[in-house]
Amino acid sequence: MSQEVMQEDLLRQALDAIRSWIRAEKTPQPNRVDVVIDREDLLTVVETLRRIQWGYLSAITGLDHPVTEPAEGESAQEGHVEVLYHFCEKDKVLTLRVSVPYSDAVLPSICGILPSATLFERELSEMFGVRIEGTPDTSRLLLPDNWPEGVYPLRKAFTGFPEAKEGSDE
């Protein structure tokens, strides 16, 4: 392997393989490319990356985009959660970005392809309320046992529990 050439072409190699599923693409930092893909294509794209043995799944990040106050005359947009799958290979990072609306916050599990995703998926699902279809374990990983159902702490709408705000340090 000619390492020098490889390094430069790494991102291109990945992008070429998944080109047909990319909806949008940007380069936020020199070593990074972010691509927007549809939820339906997630498994295919992850499978493709695994097949060409590109990188490893370094992290899954959730980003909450709550409903913004609509401008005059515009209809309100539904809030959505953006899920970022970061794949690292040497100094390069390829990020797959998938958006799901609050009302249909469901994503297919990628654990069938990359078993290491299980803890990341469970964290995402607890913190952002994204249901991961087919993930091998859905029991609580991080939140307390008595944490109420349907409360997702990393959504922007969550600002603490009312009883806790009344002074006690609970």
Binding site: M127, L142, P144, P153, L154, K165, G167, S168, D169
Partner: peptide, 11 residues
């Protein structure tokens, strides 16, 4: 490992 959640009240 354990980071997120339970926010302490800011008074």
């Amino acid at each position: 490992n354990d980071r997120t959640v339970v926010v302490k009240t800011v008074r």
